[in-house]
Write a protein that binds this DNA or RNA. Structure first.
Length: 111
DNA sequence: ATGTTGACGGTTG
DNA sequence: TCAACCGCCAACA
């Protein structure tokens, strides 16, 4: 689902969960993004634009080093998304519309 | 089986 | 705007 987020747009952990018909699994989505940390170098996961997922307030939500938060901000800026100094993105401007249920279904069924 | 731990989110003060 | 609380989901020990 995260791969569907267009360049220059963002969405939230909760929205990703909701699109997958699991509205209370926002936390699990975060857990999945964190897991990508251990998949670096694996071409199967290197194309996941994890930087486009922020929290419900539009804030970068990485818990680790200050460096990793800065990296997410830079990746977003590099694709045209404005990130304020306090690591926040204006959702009114950059929020991705998301996919409607039928599209999600088609996606999950592959093809 | 049981408890802890997060890149979360809505509500409340 | 913020922080504290609490509910939730999945991975681990």
């Amino acid at each position: 689902m995260v791969r569907q987020i267009p360049k220059g747009k963002v969405t939230s952990y909760g929205r990703v969960a909701a699109m997958l018909d699991s509205p209370n699994a926002a936390r699990a989505v975060g857990y999945a993004m964190a897991g990508l940390r251990y998949k670096q170098g694996n071409p199967q996961y290197d194309d996941v634009p994890w930087q486009r997922v922020v929290n419900h307030a539009g804030r970068i939500s990485i818990k680790g080093s200050r460096h990793s938060r800065f990296m997410q901000a830079e990746l977003l800026r590099a694709e045209g998304v404005e990130v304020s100094d306090d690591l926040r993105v204006d959702l009114d401007e950059y929020l991705w519309d998301g996919l409607a249920p039928p599209e999600v279904k088609r996606l999950l069924e592959g093809k």
